[in-house]
Design a protein around this nucleic acid. Sequence first.
DNA 1: GTATTTTTGGAACGAGCGTTCTAGCATCCG
DNA 2: CGGATGCTAGAACGCTCGTTCCAAAAATAC
Lengths: 199, 199
Amino acid sequence: MRGRPREFDRDEALDRALDVFWDKGYGAAAIGDLTRAMGIGRQSLYDTFGDKHSLYLEALRRYAERRLVQARETFEAEGTPLENLRVFFAEWREEALDGTCGCMMVNSSTEVGAVDEAAARIVENTMRRLEDLLAELLERARTAGELTDLASPRALARLIVDAANGMSARSRMGLSADEVDDVLGALDAMLTVKARPAA
Amino acid sequence: MRGRPREFDRDEALDRALDVFWDKGYGAAAIGDLTRAMGIGRQSLYDTFGDKHSLYLEALRRYAERRLVQARETFEAEGTPLENLRVFFAEWREEALDGTCGCMMVNSSTEVGAVDEAAARIVENTMRRLEDLLAELLERARTAGELTDLASPRALARLIVDAANGMSARSRMGLSADEVDDVLGALDAMLTVKARPAA
DNA sequence: GTATTTTTGGAACGAGCGTTCTAGCATCCG
DNA sequence: CGGATGCTAGAACGCTCGTTCCAAAAATAC
């Protein structure tokens, strides 16, 4: 007596919804846009995901988790810490040039960050965890003698996160490869420079 | 036969509207919020500013112009280029710690940047001009021998703009002084470091 | 078969929005 | 004074949206 089974894949539908929210934001994504992209009917959406806000939070959590997992995998791959960081930079570069949507968490923080506490907490936690992961990686780089002593690993991690988020905001207006490479090159040079011993 | 004169100051009312848009964004700022903050009636708003979108663009232009003027004044003050840049950092620090709204242009770029072309153009032009001002300042710092040769003035300017915008996005979630100082300190150390001549 | 569940889609509700219209009152100029 | 303009406030329009209700069809389990 289990009745008719669901015809769509829940995770797949959630991914489609994620794409819509990522592109349009929360407010501008209408239910019609969502059901069309997800390939399901209104009632199925409400039965499966509750309401629009719940669906949004679930998509945002999914996005955040995916980002953290990717960063962790990159940071814990084989290779020196600095090499892994450069892979992270390369991934960041590709996303800045390809996608025109920016980082969904940055978008969320400015759109609903002031009103939606649940979303704000997700964004805040994720950014802090990403900062922690970066700080750990830089700590290892320092131990390995790969890192500049210009600033603490924590400070450098914070600068990198801010630069990434800032570029995400700019990526909406179309970034050239030069602009991205300038920023990444400056960061790279900074991280590896050895200060002159005596002024 | 000129009739009754306007009772409110147009610029002042525009500033109040700017505050509302800055705090709530475009979509979440209702006409009622605007008229209440501006201290005028609905009809006066429409007669004076056209409609909501025109008012928003005018407020955004005002904000952008104000930011550019402030940056230019800071950069062209007495003192060495690097001293002036540090004043810029101090102003940036204060805003990141005091205001919880972030930079209005960053907020605009994520909220309406995808839909509102007029707003996107304002943001884009302003950010480019700010980058240019920073690059000129850093160029002068280089000439004066104050600047690192780790990266070009243009690249450093782009990094600074991205870091500022990224911190703006984070400021919505409440930043501690440590977090801000970490980023500013790392940037400062980077800009002034002299690379070791030989490895 | 029956019972149960999911599907789809139409219809409607209710709320909020930007905007316009209207009417009445206030203030200025000539 | 009269004419013109600005202010206020209420009412209404039209639109979009999220959400719910409902009914009929389809697919499973017993």
